[in-house]
């Protein structure tokens, strides 16, 4: 008993008890639902057997039914477009801003801090604001585009099937840029200045320095930013709920929003679970890339 107490106080027992609290929490609230969700995707679930665990086992029927549904593939395609262009936009704008603020002009740190405002705003609020900006009749975006002569007629961003997905992408880029910028700024700040000076003396111009010093030394950070971006964009739900609700005619619907619709609007829990399981697979791959890229960080 005494030995147990002693090890709890300053031995391995303390470490184990700390870890076990977290592990219990994670297993109970993440692990079990994850497995439950995976099991549900192989079962026939309806309103009447929702309260039991033993339900008819249907094998891959739910998966087959999902892919037989004509709306599924367009929705997955939308997801792909949404993820790719959101990440590309967030990364490019974020990197450009990070480089800009790394010039360290007076007031740059305060300005950079201001950019974080977008990151702390709730998605639903951001969505509501973008609804105003994107509004077809009185939105400021249409006004600006018309003023500079890009368009001649109003675009109905949220209700035109050609633009509805892009409406969410634009809002999502705005929402995620600050996070990208901050992570990339940290990566940039970690590159010692004398390496750039050495490269200058070695004859490298600004573009060559960016290509041969900045980019390779940022590899770990970029890997982390992109894989975190993948996870965050696959999680993005609020903006869809606030801006388009996946419509019109599923033109802006994506997998994560579709899974919610299936489960909680159409009460087809099995189909909702099936989509979620497919997404878990993608997120897992992203997580592995993230973990590996942070491991490979270069230290001078």
């Amino acid at each position: 008993m005494r030995a147990l107490l002693a090890s709890l106080r300053d031995g391995r027992g303390f470490d184990i008890s700390l870890i076990s609290i977290t592990m219990t929490f994670l297993l109970l609230f993440c692990g079990v639902p994850l497995i439950y969700n995976a099991i549900m995707s192989f079962q026939e679930v309806d309103i009447f057997n929702l309260n039991t665990f033993i339900r008819p086992w249907v094998g891959f029927d739910n998966y087959r039914a999902l892919f037989a549904d004509a709306t599924t593939l367009p929705i997955f395609y939308n997801t792909l477009v949404f993820v790719f262009f959101s990440i590309a936009g967030q990364f490019l704008v974020g990197f450009a801003l990070a480089l800009f603020f790394s010039l360290k002009f007076s007031g740059s740190t305060y300005l950079r801090g201001l950019f974080l405002v977008s990151w702390v705003m709730p998605g639903l609020v951001v969505g509501a604001i973008w609804n105003w900006i994107l509004s077809g009749d009185f939105g400021i975006l249409n006004h600006v585009l018309k003023y500079i002569g890009v368009i001649s007629d109003n675009i109905f961003w949220r209700s035109d099937i050609h633009f509805s997905l892009w409406a969410v992408i634009i809002a999502n880029i705005w929402l995620g840029t600050a996070f990208n910028m901050i992570l990339l700024s940290v990566g940039l700040a970690a590159i010692p200045n004398d390496i750039y000076e050495a490269a200058q003396l070695d004859g490298a111009n600004a573009i060559q320095r960016f290509r041969t010093i900045t980019l390779p030394m940022m590899r770990a950070t970029i890997g982390a930013v992109v894989s975190l971006g993948l996870i965050f964009t696959l999680q993005q739900f609020d903006l869809f709920a606030a801006i388009t609700s996946g419509g019109p005619a599923n033109s802006s619907n994506v997998a994560q929003y579709r899974a919610w619709e299936m489960s909680f609007k159409e009460y087809d829990f099995a189909r909702g679970a099936t989509i979620s399981v497919l997404m878990i697979g993608v997120v897992m791959i992203a997580s592995i890339i993230y973990v590996r890229s942070t491991k490979q960080e270069i230290r001078g």
């Binding site: 010692p192 004398d194 390496i195 000076e197 050495a198 490269a199 390779p216 030394m217 590899r219 270069i298």
Partner: peptide, 11 residues
């Protein structure tokens, strides 16, 4: 130039 920190390219 040879720097005090050597400034080698770590990558």
């Amino acid at each position: 130039m040879v720097f005090q920190s050597y400034a080698l390219y770590p990558h």
